[in-house]
Design a protein around this nucleic acid. Sequence first.
DNA 1: TAGATTGTTAATCGATTAACAATC
DNA 2: TAGATTGTTAATCGATTAACAATC
Lengths: 211, 211
Amino acid sequence: MAKSNTISMPVIRRLPRYYRFLYDLKENGVTRISSRELAHCMGLTASQIRQDLNCFGGFGQQGYGYVVEQLYAEIGRILGTDRPMDAILLGAGNLGKAVANHMNFENRGFRLIGVFDDANALVGTQLGNHTICPTSALPAFCEENNPRMAILCIPKEAAPALVERLIQCGITGFWNFSHYDIAHHHPGVVVENVHMGDSLMTLSYQMTENP
Amino acid sequence: MAKSNTISMPVIRRLPRYYRFLYDLKENGVTRISSRELAHCMGLTASQIRQDLNCFGGFGQQGYGYVVEQLYAEIGRILGTDRPMDAILLGAGNLGKAVANHMNFENRGFRLIGVFDDANALVGTQLGNHTICPTSALPAFCEENNPRMAILCIPKEAAPALVERLIQCGITGFWNFSHYDIAHHHPGVVVENVHMGDSLMTLSYQMTENP
DNA sequence: TAGATTGTTAATCGATTAACAATC
DNA sequence: TAGATTGTTAATCGATTAACAATC
């Protein structure tokens, strides 16, 4: 399916946004769309959309455009929504709770199968339909269930040691909300950072500069 | 101070990360650092760091490097941490609560001064040291307190109408956690998106492709 | 002074946009 | 068929890296 086996990150980061817009179009009963129309409603150029999509294959039809439903399904497949991976959550504080409750994992390529936290007040309590376990239970749990992805909602200080343990347990991908930078320390491991603090400061800069 | 008045977004997005690393260096008692050393510990090139910093001025010294404490302070100033802006939170559900409790606004250029939600179960209750108000109270509140920034932790469906109301109330910046795309609809308004769903799908893609 | 490291200019690389032939 | 719109190649633009003179 893929034309090349190395797609650039800017392209990949645009895919979920295409996916959202196509979903809305689909819901609104739009069955076909041209790159020109889609570009207009997303604030992009038609060229960019065609370039992006052609990294993965020719999904359109000359003279006609793209079938919304079909393109939506294709992008979903590219993003891996059809073969969900098992994930565990580390840290069930404010942020961990919000992520667990708020995020629709099933629709985004993952399945949350366990929640871990060492706080005495939390161990044994429920978060959604998961009973919170201490991190001492990690090795046995991973041995049995083989999760691939770990969500880090823990304080920065706890991150380095926990990351090591998780990698030893077979974790190969991190969704990282902690302010610790895993990225370049562990080659071979995929890391997606959600640095909310960085995002907030970027906004601060922009508002300071554009009064 | 600024050499040019249009700094590119990639540069701006790296600033908070520099800020974090410099903070850690400072805490660890490191007083000076060369672009080469900093590049090594951040996984960047020395060239890039020097280029980035020189967008804002010459903070270093030939033959010596950069004074950690001083560079940290400079970047903080550039990001606007020294003149915090007032912000309000819209939506006090799981995510809103987590953001309000988890985020250190004061250190990142903002001050949270109000929380709004229309759910009957929430109006009148406390979140941190804020009493949650209904959105009907927005105009009067904004008239009196003039907040500049709004944090959107509301469902996608509620976003479009609320964004309009907020702009009418004088809001010029949005920290947007909703899955609604404000960006190109309102020129002149600054928007920083935290699309957690997009981030999660990007991770899904990366893990699917690198097995 | 000699060594080190910056600030800055030039070269390279990559991503976006424009153009157009292919084709539905 | 004629009109529309894709897939794809070429041109442009911007960002990163390399090189080096300035200077502490």
